[in-house]
């Protein structure tokens, strides 16, 4: 499948307030919790907590967009909307111009944890991602290609417990690629890996992107990773003007100059890095902060 464009228009999402802070959104967004979240949002269940408010974003086909933001700023929730695991209360999401309804075959997701089924071999875990109804022989060929692409040919018969974290994460990426998605959604895909493995995986992702172009939307905590990988960085956060609990929105969209592969030590990137860190409320010590307060002060941009 060719890379597909993604359009978010006025996307908002609220959950039942449960007092568990950032985790509740993730909890409520899965399985049974989703139903109760919806009840609450439609006014039947009392207090709600708004996580996302009025997100507008156009992602071009084949573009790599990184979402960054402080913890609890709704990054993962936004990804869940795009992958169809959750549905916005308000607003719409279109993939390639057609609205997204529920789980969509054009979209594939990989998570921070590899989430491989422990009783299946690496090979058959990857096969789980094949589109439903794929003929067996075609599926085997496709899985073979993917094993080659993510350099796991030697591990095809191993169980997930027998491979390293980086290998498991590559298998998880291959599983997401198995359906040849037009949109690849990655939720902190390298967040749990050690620093060196992470750098290797970033290069692997870029290789995969040039071998099998897909639109990539990824969440990351790592500003360097966002700058190294993406065409644009989207900063999510609370609006400092709005009252507490009105949900986070897009604070800033930053185009990353230059073409990939980028120089990790590029001076322009270092400036952007300082700017993004400042947007996240973290002092980069790159230049003196305008005030000693460490709260998010995006209005000062």
């Amino acid at each position: 499948m060719p890379a597909l464009s993604v359009t978010l228009a006025g996307v908002s999402r609220s959950f039942a307030a449960s007092g568990r802070g950032g985790a509740s959104g993730r909890l409520a967004a899965s399985g049974r919790g989703a139903a109760s979240g919806r009840d609450a949002a439609s006014g039947r269940g009392g207090a709600t907590r708004r996580v996302l408010t009025n997100i507008d974003l156009d992602i071009r086909a084949g573009e790599i967009v990184a979402l960054i933001g402080a913890s609890g700023s709704g990054k993962s929730t936004l990804l869940r909307q795009v992958s169809g695991l959750d549905t916005p209360d308000v607003g719409s999401i279109q993939i390639d111009g057609t609205p997204l309804v529920g789980i969509d075959q054009r979209c594939a997701i990989a998570f921070q944890e590899p989430r491989l089924l422990p009783w299946r071999t690496i090979e058959s875990n990857i096969a789980l991602g094949l589109p439903r109804g794929t003929p067996k022989a075609d599926g085997a060929v496709r899985v073979g290609e993917l094993l080659h692409l993510v350099e796991l040919e030697g591990a095809r018969e191993l169980k997930p417990s027998q491979v390293s974290g980086g290998m498991a994460q590559r298998a998880s990426l291959a599983r997401a690629l198995a359906r040849g998605p037009g949109v690849l959604v990655l939720d902190e895909p390298f967040g749990a890996l050690d620093a060196l493995t992470r750098l290797t995986m970033q290069d692997l992702l870029l290789e995969v992107h040039s071998a099998e172009p897909a639109t990539i939307l990824l969440v990351t905590h790592d500003v360097d990773e966002a700058l190294y990988l993406s065409d644009r960085v989207v900063l999510l956060g609370d609006d400092p003007e709005a009252p507490q609990g009105s949900g986070s929105g897009i604070r800033r969209i930053l185009s990353v100059p230059g073409s990939r592969p980028r120089d990790r030590a590029d001076a322009t990137l270092a400036l952007l890095r300082a700017e993004l860190l400042d947007g996240l409320g973290v002092s980069s010590h790159h230049r003196p902060a305008p005030s000693p307060s460490t709260t998010v002060r995006l209005d000062s941009f």
């Binding site: 899965s30 399985g31 992958s83 169809g84 695991l85 789980i103 075959q105 594939a108 997701i109 998570f111 944890e113 989430r115 089924l117 789980l128 991602g129 589109p131 439903r132 599983r175 359906r179």
Partner: peptide
């Protein structure tokens, strides 16, 4: 929960989610 979510994300219906 995470594994169940993976199953859902890869388009498994209720019965195949149970079986697989």
């Amino acid at each position: 929960r995470h594994l169940v979510e993976v199953g859902r994300a890869y388009g498994l219906g209720r019965l195949s989610l149970l079986a697989r």
